[in-house]
């Protein structure tokens, strides 16, 4: 210990300590934070090549030959495999026509083809990977906590019942009633269309799983009060009352009135 005690008052010690502290804190933070998104699932070389071929065929007219983007479509460098999978596996990409937002429609690629394209885009630059089965396993997640998180983070666009809602200028938050856990997870990771990105820093994996569990509960929920009318709220209830119910009441009144003659 003589070695240290002799030198602890030297002028360079403070600088060295500061550098050491910075190294420990910064290195530690980097070790904790950079684990998740950077690990891009690297497919086999043939898969990547197949992906590139498919990309050039179906996507490059808008996204550019090197996925660098163009006037008609954004760059795909660094968007990650999750983004490709979400957009293509829900039929949103390729878009059938330019519009306010790409609607979900019939899927035109097979799972293998989508995986190939994802692998190629992932090989360009690191980005969010397709969630693993482990990440998507919400069996043990707390549904009620998920409900709170859903109402805080999702309900203002997707509506408390998950039925979707309108955004400005023809854009919209789609209904979640038919979305799979993987799609929802990928959407949270990559923030497609107008959706913000909920990275693992803002919404840890455990909380994402809770939200998955809550949306699953919403999808499975029976309607204990009878016909649900799409859970679209009071406007639909009012319309139903006026058209179906009030018509029946007036018909009854007319019937009783006619009996007079």
């Amino acid at each position: 210990m003589k070695f240290l005690s002799h030198r602890r008052r030297k002028p360079w010690v403070a600088t060295a300590l500061l550098a050491m502290a910075l190294l420990v804190v910064g290195g530690g933070y980097a070790a904790v934070s950079s684990t998740a998104p950077a690990e891009a699932a690297m497919g086999s070389q043939t898969q990547v090549e197949e992906g590139k071929r498919l990309f050039l065929e179906g996507c490059s007219s808008c996204h550019g030959l090197e996925a660098q983007g163009s006037m008609n479509g954004p760059s795909l460098i660094g968007v990650g495999a999750a983004s490709v999978h979400f957009q293509v596996a829900t039929g949103r990409m390729p878009m059938s026509a330019p519009g306010a937002q790409a609607p979900a429609k019939e899927v035109i690629y097979t799972e293998d083809e989508i995986a190939a394209m994802s692998a190629w885009v992932a090989s360009l630059a690191p980005g969010p990977a397709i969630p693993t089965a482990e990440q998507l396993d919400f069996a043990d997640a707390d549904v009620a906590e998920g409900g709170v998180l859903f109402r805080i983070n999702c309900a203002q666009c997707h509506q408390a019942a998950g039925g979707g809602g309108a955004l400005t200028d023809g854009k919209y938050a789609p209904s979640l009633m038919n979305a799979t856990p993987q799609e929802i997870y990928e959407a949270m990771l990559t923030g497609p269309q107008n959706m913000p990105i909920f990275s693992d820093e803002t919404l840890p994996v455990a909380e994402k799983q809770q939200i998955l569990a809550y949306i699953d509960a919403l999808q499975q929920a029976p309607s204990p009060g009878g016909l649900s009318l799409g859970r679209l709220g009071p406007v639909v209830e009012g319309l139903f009352m006026w058209t179906a119910v009030f018509a029946a009441l007036i018909a009854a009144a007319v019937w009783i009135g006619i009996k007079a003659r």
């Binding site: 409900g147 709170v148 109402r151 805080i152 309900a155 203002q156 666009c157 997707h158 509506q159 408390a160 019942a161 039925g163 979707g164 809602g165 309108a166 938050a173 919403l218 929920a221 309607s223 204990p224 009060g225 009878g226 016909l227 649900s228 009318l229 859970r231 679209l232 709220g233 009071p234 406007v235 209830e237 009012g238 319309l239 139903f240 009352m241 006026w242």
Partner: peptide
Amino acid sequence: GLVNINPVWIFGPYTPDQVTAGTQPDW
């Protein structure tokens, strides 16, 4: 008995920091 109205359990409890899309009053 046949048609559900105002499924409050779906909407969750009110707290001022939360908002849901599709908020409308009765007709």
